[in-house]
């Protein structure tokens, strides 16, 4: 059994019950540095909460508030990002053609808590998104969508980025990709995840790939 399991369970309970005070107490009692607390406790527990949501065992609102509690505590404890991850390849998050920004906000919260630096493009249409990606030299682009028509637009995004010779890894997420698990491949994305913490694992992998390509 993982020796951290009791702590994971305690933190999960605190986050699911939206208990900021208990979360702070668990951090203090853990004796861990802020970054180790983030890596060894927050992220695994947020991942478990995400998995619970996939199974229908917890709610989106709990994921949202858990993420906010983590982000708020880490902002306080980690004024600057760890040097290693601040060297991540140029990365951006965006919502394609939609004003419902919750998915992007969840993702941003997890990435920020993990020390990643990225551009937050907010809501974008296809043309603007391609321009921004080109201008900023983005190598990893995380795209959140709500509607099927927007999700299908990622295919055109892929085509335009390829046409301009831009080497961009696209990670997609949002309801259409959860309800059709073959859709991400169809639109030419490099990966998808039903949860923000799942996307974090993908970002780690893709960042390594990009670094490798640059060598």
């Amino acid at each position: 059994m993982d020796t951290r399991e009791p702590l994971h369970q305690e933190l999960e309970t605190a986050l699911l019950s939206l208990n900021k005070v208990a979360t702070r107490r668990i951090f203090k009692e853990s004796g861990l540095s802020p970054i180790r607390f983030a890596e060894e406790l927050f992220m695994p527990v947020l991942d478990r909460i995400g998995a619970k949501w996939e199974r229908g065992d917890c709610a989106l609102s709990q994921i949202y508030v858990s993420g906010r509690i983590c982000e708020s505590l880490l902002n306080e404890l980690l004024p600057t990002a760890p040097a290693e991850q601040s060297m991540n390849p140029p990365m951006a998050v965006a919502t394609l053609e939609d004003s419902h920004l919750l998915g992007k906000r969840l993702l941003s919260s997890v990435l920020r808590s993990s020390g990643y630096h990225f551009h937050d493009y907010g809501q974008q249409n296809l043309e603007n998104l391609v321009s921004k990606v080109q201008f900023d030299g983005i190598r990893i682009l995380l795209v959140s969508t709500l509607m099927l028509s927007s999700a299908l637009r990622v295919k055109e995004l892929r085509r335009r980025l390829d046409k301009q010779g831009l080497q961009v890894k696209i990670v997609v997420g949002g309801a259409p990709f959860r309800f059709d698990q073959a859709l991400w491949r169809e639109v030419g994305a490099d990966a998808t995840s039903p949860t923000a913490t799942g996307a974090l694992a993908i970002v780690r992998r893709l960042a390594d790939e990009v670094r490798h390509e640059n060598q």
Binding site: E97, L148, S149
Partner: peptide, 14 residues
Amino acid sequence: VLYYDDGPPNSGEP
């Protein structure tokens, strides 16, 4: 209300 050629109209900024 934002209209699209290939999907349902969506709400814009709240």
